[in-house]
Design a protein around this nucleic acid. Structure first.
Lengths: 110, 110
DNA sequence: CATATTTATCGTAATATTGCAATAAACAAA
DNA sequence: TTTGTTTATTGCAATATTACGATAAATATG
């Protein structure tokens, strides 16, 4: 059906899945890495940096913005994007709690 | 088009996206959390634990197994699944390197 | 052997995602 | 005002994902 049954999972599980989903495309990974690397905020240079059409980049930026991981400020005709540090940190805490789960060592099989 | 242009991204960026994608569904998050929590490995109890049909769970398990994050050993008619510790650790290193990027503080806007 | 149990696979319907051309919107500069 | 520049939005087409019924495959058990 293409539609996840999110109502049967916990709020936390859905939150993890939402964050992970946005990282589930290499273009968004590349955009974020670029925003981390470049000292000054980036606008449409991302279109040149990454090899995708302008509407496609704009769409990926929208998803990142919607989750709060980046923010953009209008500067004349261009828009300046950068990482939203507070929200990135909050996301990192959620994801780290998931990734750093301890493995119970009593397992019988495997 | 539904098809990501993975050839224009680095191997690392694609790797991160692939790992993230598998976490991008709450059912797979729930399966992994359950495997971490339960001391002895789990088989079809996951179908009861999580409220999805057996073929659906089987499909999600297949994706997790395909990425190497879990492994299953046949035990009579049932299959015992558990976290693949080595591969989980390797994945964690990749994801942590991405999540723990340092933010350059010279940014002008935002 | 016949039957039950457990898991995997197939087929399919519903929905989501990706990508881009075309175009709009907003602003700057001449 | 007209023209250019930059970004967002709309409207598709192609592909992917999710979910599950039906069924197969494998192994127990009677």
């Amino acid at each position: 059906m293409g539609l996840a049954k999110s109502e049967i999972f916990t709020r936390k599980q859905n939150e993890i899945a939402l964050f992970a989903k946005v990282f589930g495309h290499p273009a968004r990974v590349a955009i974020l890495e670029h925003l981390f690397k470049i000292d000054t905020c980036i606008c449409g240079d991302l279109v040149n940096e990454i090899g995708l059409a302008q509407p496609t980049i704009s769409q990926h930026l929208k998803e990142l913005k919607h989750l709060g991981l980046i923010k953009g400020t209008i500067d004349g005709t261009s828009v300046c994007y950068c990482i939203d540090k507070d929200n990135w940190l909050a996301m990192k805490n959620v994801m780290n709690a998931f990734l750093n789960q301890d493995i119970t060592e009593k397992g019988s099989c495997c």
